[in-house]
Design a protein around this nucleic acid. Structure first.
Lengths: 209, 209
DNA sequence: ACCTGAACACCGTTCAAGT
DNA sequence: ACCTGAACACCGTTCAAGT
């Protein structure tokens, strides 16, 4: 919107995009620490001073990477919701699974997205994050409309749910929760959020699978 | 136990501890990225090659830092439990608050502790992490003995609780959840884990404080 | 056993100069 | 408007040499 970084083809032909793509490859391969501007310049076949025209410094490139990360996460969450029925529990389970799935692949990127570091991140990243979580909020909104939660304060419930899902994503990436148990655990989570005896339902979900 | 790094006083007098202390200061001040071996050498008044005798490389120092972090976290959690009554809900609330409190101060250290990076961290760090979370597990064990949870699978409940608390810690550090709302939110969490109508109790916890 | 100091390769950032 | 290439300060790591 602000810039006209469009599709010019000068010496290299939109170097910016090429740099970001190379950066993501390096990020997946070796983590954020091993990501070097000079490497990216070599990967894209330009001199080491060239990236400066597109990113003020290394941190600016990492921020841009975080922005694209939130965009992709948002897209995957939306896909997950669309790929399942209209039932709230199914949707909830789908977004949670998609969230953790994104975290497992792209773990270094997720770390970058939530780095926040000192100044709590530039507004561009914040805005991208908000957009990325829209789907999650939509699902929770549906849940409250359907009357799934005790509707006291839906905002609070949403935050708790968000924290839980994100917490699992973090712990799985850190190797402290085996991914195989996740379906089980999300079942537990949903049971807790459900919190309705529903006397006629008998035992819902005694042993999963 | 393995080494005899005890309290020798050579040229500097246990440089290792001094390096770790300087490292923590730098960590709080500017994050892990700005932590430099050469800076630490300057801070402690030794040559830049000296740290090599105590830490194989920069990552080894960061790992040692993570270990001390888990030790301190464990200590603070234990303190928090001891500083409150024997009631389970009080204890649960206390450890959760202490956990997030530790995360807010020491945010850079927490990031280090859960970095895991690629190889999922050396076993020394893993072991320290286990020790640090012992208190959390003890509290949850108490909860299941008291019959607080539906005791189906206490391990699962414990993991969910852990993920939720850790998730909040992460989100607060990332600036996505205002710390002021935490007491509120933990109330919500405990309500959900409680999951017992208890008809005679009236409205428990309408407005906190 | 522990530390020094020179050396090496590498990095981020800057900036005059080219096209 | 975009890129090059030399320059500068800094870093992690290595290693012979000192005490």
């Amino acid at each position: 919107m602000a810039d006209t970084h469009a599709e010019r083809t000068y010496h290299h032909g939109n170097l910016r995009r090429a740099l970001l793509q190379a950066a993501e490859r390096r990020l997946c391969a070796g983590g954020a620490d091993s990501l070097t501007l000079r490497d990216l310049a070599r990967d894209t076949g330009v001199s080491h001073g060239a990236p400066r025209r597109h990113f003020a410094d290394r941190q600016a490139l990492l921020d841009a990477l975080a922005v694209t990360g939130f965009e992709r996460l948002g897209g995957e969450l939306r896909m997950a919701v669309q790929g399942v029925g209209e039932g709230f529990v199914d949707r909830l389970r789908a977004v949670a699974a998609a969230y953790v799935h994104f975290a497992i692949r792209n773990s270094a990127l997720l770390e970058l997205m939530f780095a926040g570091k000192h100044g709590n991140g530039p507004p561009v990243v914040q805005s991208a994050a908000d957009d990325g979580f829209v789907v999650l909020l939509e699902v929770i909104h549906q849940g409250q409309k359907v009357g799934f939660f005790e509707a006291k304060d839906p905002e609070r419930v949403a935050l708790v749910l968000f924290a839980t899902v994100h917490g699992f994503a973090t712990l799985v990436v850190a190797g402290m929760v085996p991914p195989g148990q996740l379906d089980d655990l999300f079942g537990e989570v949903i049971e807790q959020f459900l919190c309705r005896p529903r006397p006629g339902a008998g035992d819902r979900r005694e042993v999963p699978h």
